[in-house]
């Protein structure tokens, strides 16, 4: 008698989150993006479905990045000092699914741009690109609490994704997302219990669970990747098993982590034994991203256009029927 295959059926599915709104839906985007909805562990299509494919957002900064290696800057040419042109390039040339606008320059230590600077830029981006938008603060709590609600206000109806809310600082952002119809990123420090707790706190303020995306805080390949990988696997298993307060899609900040790694940045003359520098950097980011896809990532925030192209091809292959 042949052994039957072991197919796993789960009682719960991941929430479906919609980012972006078209004119029919009260926004100005040319498309809305849905993530989530899967009812099994990643890419096991013999036993589960994944109605929405993972997407890639490209990061755009409001100030020219200082710590990017030349291999990463090069494909962007001269747009890195012009966030609007930068965003347009990501949309048209690099075919990003979403733009992730990082308001790093509002940080008191990084230029301390004002709320009106931030608001103007957000409006300009909305006017000049048509794909859905993620808006990210500068990680300065006070400044973010001042600026992000304004950004939420001027993008009312666009169904942006705004972040990050953390356990110690979630109320202001949650209230803003609630008031202006946006989605929120809930960040937890590689800790599934805190992720759940934060989701509970946010939903208790009235924001429904299908407007939350979990940022589990990932590390790069070689720099703690395995911690986030296992936390995401655990979280997904709990979510599919019925825990509704963990059943939200994952967002992974792959680009910022991967391009901090020495292996992604160091020149070939410094480490000849590591091989070509450009290809090494591209792969460092692409491998980091692909690993998190296997742990259930739904949105990847990435930087190098070639890494993105590779990961998109990987996603196509993963979804091939």
């Amino acid at each position: 008698m042949p052994q039957e295959l072991l197919k796993e059926q789960w009682p719960n599915a991941i929430d479906v989150i919609t980012i972006g709104a078209t004119s029919q839906e009260g926004g100005t985007r040319d498309r809305a993006i849905k993530v989530g909805g899967q009812n099994g562990l990643p890419y096991l299509f013999e036993e589960s479905d994944m109605p929405n494919k993972p997407v890639i957002a490209m990061e755009v900064f409001d100030i020219e990045p200082v710590d990017w290696p030349d291999t990463l800057k090069k494909p962007y040419g001269d747009v890195l000092s012009n966030p609007v042109e930068w965003a347009k390039k990501c949309e048209t040339e690099f075919k990003a699914d979403l733009i992730a606008l990082r308001l790093a320059g509002t940080h008191p230590d990084a230029g301390n741009k004002s709320e009106s600077d931030a608001v103007k830029l957000v409006k300009d981006i909305i006017a000049n690109v048509k794909i859905p938008l993620i808006i990210l603060g500068s990680n300065d709590e006070e400044k973010d609490n001042l600026i992000l609600p304004k950004c939420a206000e001027v993008t009312k109806g666009e169904k942006c994704l705004i972040g990050d809310a953390a356990q110690k600082n979630y109320k202001t952002l949650t209230a803003a997302c609630l008031a202006y119809g946006h989605n929120i990123i809930a960040e937890s420090p590689i800790d599934i219990n805190i992720a759940k707790q934060l989701n509970i706190l946010i939903t208790e303020m009235g924001l429904p669970s299908d407007r939350i995306i979990i940022n589990p805080t990932v590390g790069a390949l070689g720099y703690g990747l395995e911690y986030a990988y296992s936390i995401m696997e655990r979280g997904r298993i709990a979510a599919l098993g019925g825990d509704k307060m963990l059943a939200q899609p994952f967002i992974c900040f792959v680009g910022q982590e991967a391009w901090r790694a020495k292996e992604a940045k160091a020149s070939a003359s410094e480490f000849p034994e590591w091989g070509k520098e450009l290809e090494r950097g591209i792969l460092w980011e692409a491998v980091t991203a692909s690993a998190f896809l296997q742990a259930g990532a739904d949105i990847l925030i990435m930087r190098h256009p070639k890494s993105i192209e590779i990961v998109k091809e990987n996603i196509n292959q993963l979804l091939q029927k």
Partner: peptide
Amino acid sequence: TYEQVIEACIYILKYTGIVLLEGFDPYQ
């Protein structure tokens, strides 16, 4: 050049005991 590396990594994550590939550049 790149996709074979991604594939090898995925199989490592998904339990393969051995993975064989053609690329042998150190960056791969």
